[in-house]
Design a protein around this nucleic acid. Sequence first.
DNA 1: TACAATTCCGACTGTAGTGCTCGGAAATCC
DNA 2: GGATTTCCGAGCACTACAGTCGGAATTGTA
Lengths: 135, 135
Amino acid sequence: MRLMVDLARNHGHGSSSLHVVAEREQLPEAYLEQLVAILRKAGLVTGKRGAGGGYTLARDPGEITAGDIVRALEGPIEPQVCTAEGDPVVNCVREQGCGTRLVWLKLQSTIATALDGMTLAELTRQTQPTTSVAP
Amino acid sequence: MRLMVDLARNHGHGSSSLHVVAEREQLPEAYLEQLVAILRKAGLVTGKRGAGGGYTLARDPGEITAGDIVRALEGPIEPQVCTAEGDPVVNCVREQGCGTRLVWLKLQSTIATALDGMTLAELTRQTQPTTSVAP
DNA sequence: TACAATTCCGACTGTAGTGCTCGGAAATCC
DNA sequence: GGATTTCCGAGCACTACAGTCGGAATTGTA
């Protein structure tokens, strides 16, 4: 998440190497490498190899939501297996009788709505960069 | 959760033993025992020992929310440690600069609102019992 | 009073996810 | 050719979750 917001902040100024991002965000570089691989496969970022390379957002910051990122990294939003996003009810034998399915369904849609409603553009707008850049 | 809804359904008809609940809800009794101990310590249910004993909701089903149950079993609602419910920001050094704290804060309040808005009474009203009882 | 039912309690186990490390191969720029 | 950087796979420590087990304390009833 922090990685993506960082990339969003630098969107339009070329690509950022993980090394730089890791330093800016105080995150372990080796770990980011692993995460960004998933984000790349999900089509959220694009990587460029070699010296001067790095990563860039694949879409405009206004077109990427927190939901996109969460889904890429953690799979479909499902408080319980029986309430997986979009899929038909397949894992639960109880369906009708289950007194709690309603809770998880409601929760799932609430969470999804909240996450899908926040774009990276908004997040960069509403927060300060971690290290201030000279003017 | 299923346990609590089951108790709510039987509220006003004496106490239910875990043995019976476990059978009705198809849940492992030994496991329920452990969970109900937590719920009891949280003041959500009361237990009565001995033959004919069992558990009862400590309050009216309309006075117990899904949020109460989740908080009892899983602790405060916090998508991230730095966004624990109610507490002042204490775990995060980044505070201002963190581009993602907003996401978790929003998520936390959304989830809490959703869970706190569902009472056991509503859940029993909107669902069928797992095994139908003869009239 | 004995017995059965039932809560109460603590310790233990297996599995999966999360955050993180390491070593190395491939591409790209200078 | 060398530095930079992405790409890839394997592995590790920790924690939470779901579940089991054995046994002690309490209470109603025959």
